[in-house]
């Protein structure tokens, strides 16, 4: 089964390296507006949330495309745009619930994450692991582990409390 991009925004330090390497990998130039991934920031609260395409199973962009330029590539587990067919109407931009389908004002084209054909550079450069590329069945494993840790910690605390009583 194809891997998926897993974003744990709490780990994000807001450094925007992912935006840099995404633009350079795809377009050979550095420009955050060319990046397929974008970190949304609330600086005054220290909150940073990377937003990228979720490669939806029932993708609104695919459904809305009037010329059927968007399709699902099962092998790579991604939703992709066929630029030979795309007419640049931006309907997909309008319907994407994440804003992950973007419009590049320089080349006047829609663009989205293509998982770098299986070697996502944002993941490779994200030292803190805020963006990971993992097997689909593992997406919830990390969270389960954390929840289990919390439970066991609480368990230990309650034992200690009991001992004090």
């Amino acid at each position: 089964m194809a891997k998926v991009l897993y974003i744990d925004y709490q780990r994000c330090t807001g450094c925007r390296t992912c935006e840099q390497v995404c633009a350079v990998k795809h377009d050979g130039v550095l420009n955050p507006i060319r990046s397929r991934i974008k970190i949304m920031k609330w600086e005054a609260e220290g909150l940073y949330v990377p937003i990228s395409c979720q490669q939806c199973q029932d993708a609104p962009c695919m459904n809305v495309c009037p010329v059927k330029a968007i399709s699902r590539n099962e092998e790579l587990g991604r939703v992709e745009v066929n630029y030979d067919v795309c007419i640049g109407c931006r309907s997909c931009v309008v319907v994407c619930p994440f804003g992950a389908m973007s419009f590049n004002p320089i080349d006047r084209q829609v663009f989205k994450c293509d998982l770098c054909d299986g070697d996502p550079q944002c993941v490779r450069f994200c030292d803190v692991g805020a963006i990971q590329y993992i097997n689909a069945e593992e997406v919830a494993l990390d969270k389960k582990r954390h929840a289990a840790e919390r439970l066991s910690m609480a368990g230990k605390d309650s034992v200690a409390l009991l001992a004090q009583m």
Partner: peptide, 20 residues
């Protein structure tokens, strides 16, 4: 006060030396 992952970084930096 800011959670387990409380370090923040400047542009394009992986050292993330600033705490929140």
């Amino acid at each position: 006060t800011c959670g387990e992952y409380h370090m923040t970084a400047c542009y394009g930096c992986q050292v993330h030396c600033r705490a929140k």
